[in-house]
Design a binder for these strands. Sequence first.
RNA 1: GGGCUCGUGGUGUAGCCUGGUCUAACACGUCGCCCUGUCACGGCGAAGAUCGCCAGUUCAAAUCUGGUCGAGCCCGCCA
Length: 431
Amino acid sequence: MNRVLVREIPQYIGNEVLLKGWVHQLRRLGKINFLLLRDRSGIVQTVILDPTIDLSKIDQESVVAIWGIPKKEAQAPGGIEVEVKRIELIEQAQSPLPFEVNRPLELLNIKLDTILDHRAFALRHPKINAIFKIEAELVHAFREFLRKEDFLEIHTSKIISQGTEGGTNLFPIQYFETQAYLAQSPQFYKQMMVGAGYERVFEVGFVYRAEDHATSRHINEYLSLDFEMGFIDSEKDIIDLEIRLLRYIFESIKKNCANELKLYEVDLPTIEFIPQIQFKEAREILKKYYRKELLTSDDLDPEAERLLCDYAQKEFNSEFIFVTNYPISARPFYTMPYDETYSRGFDLLYRGMEVTTGSQRIHNYQLLVNNMAKFGLNPQDFEFYLEIFRYGMPPHGGLAIGAERLTQQILGLKNIREASLFPRDRYRLVP
RNA sequence: GGGCUCGUGGUGUAGCCUGGUCUAACACGUCGCCCUGUCACGGCGAAGAUCGCCAGUUCAAAUCUGGUCGAGCCCGCCA
């Protein structure tokens, strides 16, 4: 007999099915017992009326096979339940469990640390499980949209000899007899692939930041959603594409993850218009509406990001806001200047947090080399990157989206670690 | 790198300020018995923690002090 998934049960009303899964909950009332069975597709109530069926070894979270007949039953959750004919214990779960996974998370109030210490087990909780279905859909939609836009998916090395910005935040690794580093960004390689003639490329991959921070929005290994495209007129082309990309991602999640969104009581907005303000305007807005002076003259602090999103919400009814034309001093050397002071670099803020950084890049070889010198970098160390710029580089630009951050903000998670299966931070290397 | 907060059964908390009556409480879970419609099932009973670790103060430490290890948040920096 072939296994039937929980979500397929409605097709089998009146016919015996074989179900396999985990015992989500067992409610023993005496002569009638209810067993909630969970598989990858959902949870179904089964009812045990036959007193000869032995439930003594059937503990919560045990793996079982159940033969039974699906029936319409008004009293059952969802209107359908399976009357059990036979139950077989496949693998018993030890007791006690690390914590409960069959009650609302809000009632359990489990510490994040406990969840992460028991990560695989914790994912059995439907609400925790849902996070990674959303994230998978997000990444899938990112790929699907860009492929439709004629982008090529690339996979570049995460083992590098030089950092993008000079080498401060890099994790050193021993690479045979030489020193190497874990990549903090696919930046150089994706630009090189534009120059290689692919024009439009994207990459989904982990990147590594050896920053000694401990906050709810930083992890040391995160999934970077990158794209880079050639023959643009300005960074506005990148921004326009990102708006369409986000619209596509949000619509995909809404369409394919309705149940998961419901668990978090999230109602994703339809993205129509995203306001764009220049950095210097942002500074004025902060001063005028919030009486806030930026402590650093060339970047936004977290409070400023929250305030600007508040402004976007009130003025434009948007949860997103682009901050454009950041000061040159706040941006890496490859960022295209806008004028003497400002660059063609931008950030996207979403619900108070930075989720994207992008820019038009410098495509002129001489300008790029001169800029490296200004930033105190030695062009000879970056010859591998610079070469293609000598042989005809089109105007280009791109951006990177932090996948965990976007997921965190979509679901309103308190800590980015919740959106990473196996987060790596200053103190966590296991599991 | 700077600042603040927290470590008590499997899970989450109370107790700590104002040491003794803490032989450590409560909720959920676990185990046993009862229950034919539960769905945060219900009822009765039971087990389970030397209060992160080390030292000190004291007649007496979960409680005070110092150290140590672990955790969380904010800032800098960033996605």
